[in-house]
Design a binder for these strands. Structure first.
Length: 801
DNA sequence: CAGTGAGCGAGCTTCCGCTTGACTT
């Protein structure tokens, strides 16, 4: 057998390293951690110095036995897990679980995957640092204690299956507090004034825009100003030119890549990671879970070559970036292309897009600044002390902008100003005063939440995507779009010395892919903040991290630290179980006049609902579900009462009842157990008539008739249907394209089967989700398998359902 | 797709970090 066994964390890494090392080395991967605390039980002996009970994870059994076999034959085992806390722990778990011997086990580390770096690391082996291992152990145990003691309180006091933890609970808190800020926000109106000027300079005429230095709060002030403007004259007071420059951003880390892919491509956080993983596995980019902005010497040199040969010497500027965030552990490089001379790479569209983004960002980071000449012009107004101001920007040298566009480019700065000089006299064309409103703080997108968590030092690159998916899976938050609302605003202008006063409308408050906390999220958060303020504190992670560092430095004993935390924490847990009330977020809204009973809103078994009457009343209470947009905290009595007006019986049709209600997908008419959607913006479920309801039913029937071209009735029927993108065949819940040159009406049963079989054969390259259930029963879950979200965390307990 | 809402109450749920699973829709 080979003399040397090298163990790394990732199989893709193993493959590349194996190439660098000679024949006498075999390189294997541990696939991350191999052991963990017991899955079901606490796995910590609280009575006995917090002794952890580690178990080989079920999905790692195979790897571990394979590694064990290999280590037996190897002369030297090189453990090359990452150089960070988790990596050191992995090294120790390997050492311990594989029963390695100190004499022939060597710990090595490297930060970049180059032959040079690896050979150098092999010349400088060290032992496993047990103090760092203990710091990891403390981190692991603290998280387990917090998670497994807090979650059961929630099951008892709020709802089963909920969860709490050091990281996720703070993430939810951020969402809830932001939502409260938004609810409490009262916008203020003001007026923004701008003027269009004309000027002639050496026989050429120019038009340009300038903004007034003052914002008016009241319309009266605006009108007064415009009135005096009628007789004003305008003169250039100053032309100030100064050079400015912009520098490129640092290369990507996990979190900045997620943010930029979200902004530019609207990728979700998990989508970005899946695409990046593909690029990594195919050797196109370096490791995608990193908090480092550092580039290797190789990458710096290669970037320089690419820049100089493609754009010229003056575009190159070698830069070394420093990681700002304190929590960074910097085991890897920044995310960059492995070959910097490859401008494009990747299979799918998404891969190509993401790769190119990474390439541009990496290359741009090694390029020179962009240089501008900025011009500020102040314009005097004869009848006023205010001034009109305008700024122009002329690009003098594009530098890094040649490859990387910065996302937030305000178009204002791109305006080219006329060549004005001091004392030039200007003709005022129009003055516009537009009413604007202050805006509430923005709701978090997934990527914005990741950014915030990173700033707080909470979570790690490998967990950002799972955190986002956990808070949604637990029902604490929903990613949603919201249509905006129409709002009127005032538009006053001075044109040809006439003041025109108009009312215009605009949409406001539209949201796209934003995280909205749910009522459950709000109730859980309030409960945790009330009873466990210290853990929900935004600085909790930062302060325990300091202690973990002390452990790693050998200045603190890990189980002493845990004990100091756990004793008071556990006491508080018991007190809370004993003394706290059940929390349902109940709010009493008032009296329902019709019945004289009390109306309240709360969280029920199936989510937020309104209820008229008490549970112990003789007559059963009436229930109604809140809509997606409604919240326990903000719903009014009237809105809640309206919920009980549905379902509404509107009449009979074809001897069957016709009723109207609002469901998950909006208002609908129900007839003969079939559902017909009301038309958005046209029909109101509270008032829609019987005749209109029938019309809706008939419209849908007509649509369905048109939809069906042909049906072959057999065991599993084959249907030829008209869809949004033309005719198609539907069979066994799958859809098949009909070739362009074929008349769908003319298709025979045989021809259909041929099309179906032709598609069914070839293997699709697109990876789909697989439930990793080998001998498990085919439990058909009602919910459609959502491609992405489900892959993440596998429920190991799918036996029951 | 769009019902439900204190039935006796078993036994279940849960954390954060490392990594990628592979045969069904």
């Amino acid at each position: 057998m080979e003399d040397n066994l090298v163990i790394v964390e990732s199989p893709a890494k193993a493959k590349t390293i194996e190439k660098f090392l000679g024949k006498e080395y075999v390189v294997k991967s541990s696939f991350g951690h191999i052991r963990d605390l017991s899955k079901k039980k606490l796995g910590i002996d609280v009575e006995n110095d917090y002794k952890p009970n580690y178990e080989v994870s079920p999905d790692k059994k195979k790897i571990v036995s394979e590694l064990r076999k290999l280590t037996k034959n190897a002369k030297t085992v090189w453990i090359a897990s990452d150089e960070d806390r988790e990596g050191e722990a992995i090294a120790w778990h390997l050492f311990d679980e594989l029963k390695l011997k100190k004499e022939n086990t060597k710990r090595i580390v490297f930060h970049e995957i180059t032959k040079k770096a690896i050979l150098k690391s092999i010349e400088n082996p060290r032992g496993i640092n047990l103090e760092i291992v203990n710091a990891q152990q403390a981190r692991r145990i603290l998280d387990r204690l917090v998670g497994f003691e807090l979650s059961p309180i929630l099951w008892k006091k709020i709802k089963p299956s909920l969860s709490a933890g050091r990281v996720q609970s703070v993430a939810v808190r951020l969402l809830v507090e932001r939502e409260r800020e938004i609810i409490a926000f009262k916008n203020e109106a003001f007026y923004k004034l701008s003027a269009l000027f004309n000027v002639s300079i050496s026989d050429k005429t120019y038009e340009f825009k300038a903004d007034l230095s003052k914002r008016f709060d009241k319309k009266k002030e605006v009108l007064e100003f415009l009135e005096t403007s009628k007789s004003s004259t305008y003169k250039v007071a100053d032309v100030i030119k100064k050079p400015t420059k912009k520098s490129p951003l640092a290369p990507f880390t996990t979190s900045t890549l997620q943010q930029e892919a979200s902004r530019k491509f609207n990728f979700s956080v998990s989508q970005t990671m899946m695409v990046a993983q593909k690029l990594y596995e195919s050797g196109k980019i370096t490791y995608m879970r990193t908090d480092s902005v550092n580039l290797s010497d190789f990458a710096l040199a290669a970037s320089k070559d690419v820049i100089v040969s493609n754009y010229g010497d003056e575009y190159s500027k070698t830069r070394k970036f420093k990681t700002k965030s304190k929590s960074a552990q910097e085991a890897h490089e920044a995310i960059r292309p492995t070959s910097l001379d490859k401008m494009t790479a990747g299979g799918s569209d998404a891969e190509k897009k993401l790769y190119q983004l990474i390439w541009k960002r990496t290359i741009a980071s090694q390029m020179s600044e962009a240089k501008f000449e900025k011009t500020n012009i102040n314009i005097d107004i004869s009848n006023s002390d205010y001034k009109f101001l305008t700024t122009g920007e002329v690009l003098k040298f594009d530098g890094f902008l040649k490859v990387y566009e910065i996302s937030e480019s305000n178009d204002n700065s791109k305006i080219l100003l006329p060549p004005l000089s001091k004392n030039d006299v200007l003709d005022m064309n129009t003055v516009n005063a537009i009413q604007r409103f202050t805006h509430h703080p923005a709701r978090y997108t997934e990527a914005a939440l990741v950014k915030k968590l990173e700033e707080l030092g909470i979570g790690r690159p490998s967990t950002y995507a799972p955190i986002i998916s956990t808070v949604q899976k637990r029902g604490y938050a929903l990613k949603e779009n919201r249509d905006g609302e129409m709002r009127e605003y005032n538009f006053v202008s001075l044109v040809n010395n006439n003041i025109i006063d108009e009312i215009k409308t605009e949409t406001t408050g539209a949201e796209k892919s934003k995280l909205f906390p749910t009522d459950i999220g709000i109730v859980v958060n309030d409960f945790l903040v009330e009873y466990f303020k210290d853990i929900l504190d935004f600085n909790f992670t930062a302060s325990v991290e300091k202690e973990f560092d002390e452990i790693a430095n050998g200045n603190l004993v890990w189980n002493k630290m845990i004990d100091k935390f756990y004793k008071p924490f556990h006491k508080k847990v018991e007190e809370t179980l004993e003394n706290s009330e059940r929390k349902s977020g109940e709010r009493k809204l008032g009296i329902d006049k019709a019945s004289g009973k009390e109306l309240l809103v709360r969280i029920g078994r199936y989510g937020p609902m309104a209820q008229i009457g008490k549970t112990d009343d003789e007559e059963k209470p009436r229930y109604a579900k809140l809509t997606r947009e409604q919240h326990i905290e903000t719903i009014t009595l009237q809105e809640a009462l309206d919920l009980f007006r549905l379902p509404r019986l509107v009449g009979e049709y074809e001897d069957k009842e016709v009723s109207v209600a609002i469901g998950r997908f909006g208002p609908y008419v129900k007839h003969d157990n079939k559902f017909f959607s009301l038309k958005k913006g046209v029909d109101d479920p509270y008032t829609v008539s019987k005749d209109r309801s029938i019309e809706i039913i008939e419209e849908k029937r007509e649509y369905d008739r048109k939809k069906t071209i042909k049906v072959f009735d057999q065991e599993i029927p084959i249907k030829i249907l008209n869809g949004r993108w033309g005719p198609y065949i539907s069979y066994n819940k799958k859809n098949f394209k009909i070739p362009k040159n074929v008349e769908p009406e003319s298709l025979s049963l045989e021809a259909c089967l041929e099309i179906i079989n032709a598609v069914a054969e070839p293997k699709k390259t697109k990876p789909k989700t697989n439930t990793k259930a080998k001998a498990k029963t085919k439990t058909k879950t009602k919910a459609k398998t959502k491609a992405k979200a489900k892959t993440k965390t596998k429920t190991k307990t799918s036996k029951k359902e």
